[in-house]
Amino acid sequence: MKNILVVVPDDRLGGAEQYLKNISYYHLEAKNKVYVVFLKRQMSGQWMDLKDLGDVKFYYSNSATELSGIGSTILNVLKIKSITFDYIYTSHLHTTSFVGFLIRFGLVKKKYFIGRESTTIFHRFKGKQLFIFKMLYRLGYPSLDLLINQTQVMRDQLIEGLPWIERKTKLVVIPNPINLRAIQNIPVPKHLVHPREFIVSAGRLIPEKGYDILIDSFKEISKEYPELDLVILGEGHKRPELEEQIRSLGLQNKVILKGHVDNVYAYFKQAKLCVVSSRVEGFPNVLLQMMSQNNRVVSTKCAGGIDELSGIICVKTDDEEAIRLGVKNVLENDLNKNQIVFSQQLEERSLESFQSKLQEFLICE
């Protein structure tokens, strides 16, 4: 039995957090012991189902913010200081830096420390904020044994922004995994999740997700397809602005900001089509989730590798007309063949395949 440490900002499931939960799922099925440390107090309970799989322990801080939770997180780490972890996993810049710092000072012992880049900071940030992030890389990333990049584009951008990093840790490209078995076990609701035909998108309500562009595009889409609504799943600080935009366009009864939902897969399955409208992503995990449920998927080219996925209708970013034409393309063509195409591509991204590639890189280290 191996000891596994997973460090997460909080227990709400964004893309990076879902990746770490999937890693935990894999190791619990392999009968390993998993320790999950959260930098915040319990907020959603979305990890609790892991207790049904095996030996997992959760350590929450006593704070609502990550910064103020550092003290209690260190105390939680001291509770497991005697354990040498076979694998440590992180997927956020600040948690990777934090754990790397603790390793350097002997507060955490490990065999392998595996980080994953969750976004391309050099396209999203600049000025003082980017300077701070670069310092965080310097602080903790030299402790890594392996740094996973979701795409070759992400790896190239990281090396361009931090030329020193190749000398300090091994950089590899492994596409995001998807937990197909867990998805198959999600109950299918017997009721309709929305009373009318709808397009669905999902993610945090932040500028990077491009929902303002999607809503503008939907104004035109709804003229041609008046039977369709737009349902957006997720929560975030841009909600007031998006609500105002919806009101100004007269779409109050057509665009629904649903907020957080427990079962996004039911919406993906019942939707007329699924849309990823992001301006920039590391790689959108939600795209894989959509592919697992629906043959009709439109995505902006918000990350490297999206246009390499067969069956996806790819469109330009920051372009409402491109989204409109992509949606029209999907609605007017028979895409049933995508069921087979999508299934084959998702199998190649299974958790087992991901872990196999990870082990190959570690062995070659």
Rank of each mutant, 00 (worst) to 15 (best):
K2C: 08
V8N: 02
D10F: 09
A16S: 09
N22D: 05
S24P: 01
V37E: 00
K40V: 09
Q42M: 14
G45V: 07
G45M: 09
S61Q: 10
G71F: 15
T73K: 11
L78A: 14
I83Y: 06
T90Q: 09
L93K: 07
T95K: 07
L102V: 10
R104I: 11
R104D: 14
F105Q: 13
L107M: 11
K110V: 07
T119W: 09
G127M: 12
L130E: 08
M135W: 15
L136A: 12
G140A: 08
L144V: 03
D156R: 06
G161M: 07
I165P: 01
I165R: 06
T169Q: 09
V172E: 03
V172M: 03
P177G: 02
P177T: 03
Q184C: 12
N185C: 10
N185I: 08
R196K: 15
G203E: 02
K219G: 02
E220H: 15
E224R: 15
E224T: 13
E224Q: 15
I232V: 13
E235M: 11
P240R: 14
Q245C: 12
S248F: 14
K254A: 15
V255R: 12
H260A: 11
H260L: 13
K269I: 05
C274F: 04
V275M: 03
S277F: 02
S277V: 06
G304M: 00
D307L: 05
K316P: 05
A322V: 07
G326E: 04
D334R: 09
D334W: 03
S343T: 13
S343G: 09
Q345V: 01
S350L: 03
S350G: 03
L351W: 00
E352W: 02
E352V: 08
K357H: 04
F361P: 02
C364Q: 15
E365V: 08
